[in-house]
Amino acid sequence: MRDDAPPRQLAFDLPLDPRYGREDFLVGPANEAAYALVEAWPDWPDSVLMLTGPPGSGKSHLAAIWAERAHAWTIPAAEVRAEGVGHLVSNGALVVEDIHRPEGRDEAALFHLLNVARERAAPVLLTSAAGIDALGLATPDLRSRLRLAPGVGIEAPDDALLRAVLVKLFVDRQLVVDLGVIEAVALRIDRSLGLARDVVTELDRDALGRGRRISRPLALAVLRRLGLDGEADG
């Protein structure tokens, strides 16, 4: 190792608390319908609403915005159990996250929850990364109940929203980057907010480990390492 080479630093993988305030949610064509419906509460078309979108698209952020407005509790679908349904609904509003995950999912308990919530006119917001027909549900009554719930989806972001989210992700980590870094990343990744988040995390980790700021050459090197160098440079 050269004596004048900058020492590599230890990069600690510390968790970053996401900012889930209304002012932190960036609205674009991909999510404006979902945002408008969440903002329209309590004037919903039904007491149960299903919000779908790919991982990292902003479902949990929107759910958190609604939960604050409605004073709702939030629980993963895998933790819904029949014996606890009465307690969950007693709060008056509820978010049930990730109903697409089969691990630990109790379909009978979810069906019971939706029935009790409807009887008590308690609003429930369900989030899912897949539509009803792709959930692999074995309970016909639950499928039927979910089909009765109005649904709204979040689509892939357009280029402007993707760039705006990249800027926000860097700002959330208190990282200062120039426009060339944003463009390098935006041109080379799929239009996925989840992937944008993962790339920014990797760039932050790599820059910290090298003791260097995030420059465009460094961004390109990290993107190549991740296999995300499909666009021609320049």
Rank of each mutant, 00 (worst) to 15 (best):
D178Y: 03
R210T: 04
S144D: 10
H61C: 04
R163N: 12
S60K: 01
F25Y: 13
G194D: 11
T74H: 10
L166Q: 04
A149F: 07
R19G: 02
D43T: 13
W44Y: 14
A30Q: 03
R188Q: 05
G211D: 08
V165Q: 14
A149W: 07
R210F: 07
H61E: 04
L62E: 07
R101V: 08
G153W: 04
L88F: 02
G209K: 04
L169P: 03
G131W: 01
A207R: 01
G58L: 10
P54H: 10
E32G: 00
G136P: 02
F111A: 03
H87K: 08
A134G: 04
A33G: 07
D13G: 06
L175E: 13
S192T: 01
R145F: 07
I75L: 03
D178R: 12
A40P: 06
D13E: 13
D3C: 09
F111R: 04
D141F: 11
V177F: 08
R143W: 01
D141P: 09
L126D: 11
E155H: 06
E68C: 11
T52M: 14
R191I: 06
A219D: 11
A196L: 12
R120C: 08
P54C: 07
L162N: 08
A196T: 09
I75G: 01
G153P: 00
W41F: 14
V167K: 09
L10P: 12
R143K: 04
L146F: 11
L14G: 09
R163Y: 06
R120E: 14
R19Q: 05
L135H: 02
A221N: 08
G227D: 14
A149L: 09
D233N: 12
R2Y: 06
D98K: 00
L113G: 04
E119R: 08
A130Y: 10
A207I: 02
R2T: 05
E119M: 05
V80K: 09
V27E: 03
L37T: 10
L26R: 09
F25N: 02
L88G: 00
A11K: 09
P150F: 09
P45R: 11
D233L: 14
R101K: 10
H112Y: 13
L226N: 07
D46L: 13
Y35M: 00
G234E: 13
L51A: 05
W73L: 15
D133F: 01
I99L: 00
D4H: 14
G86A: 11
V116E: 15
R163E: 15
G92R: 12
L37V: 14
A122I: 03
L195W: 09
V38N: 09
P217I: 05
L162P: 14
R118N: 08
I75Y: 01
A5P: 03
S192N: 04
L187A: 14
L110Y: 01
R143S: 12
A78T: 07
V152I: 08
P76V: 03
A219T: 15
V177I: 10
A5L: 15
R216P: 14
E231F: 12
F170A: 13
T139N: 15
F170W: 05
G28A: 05
L135D: 04
D158F: 10
D159P: 11
I154H: 01
A186D: 10
G86Y: 02
L148I: 08
V222E: 03
P15E: 00
W66S: 01
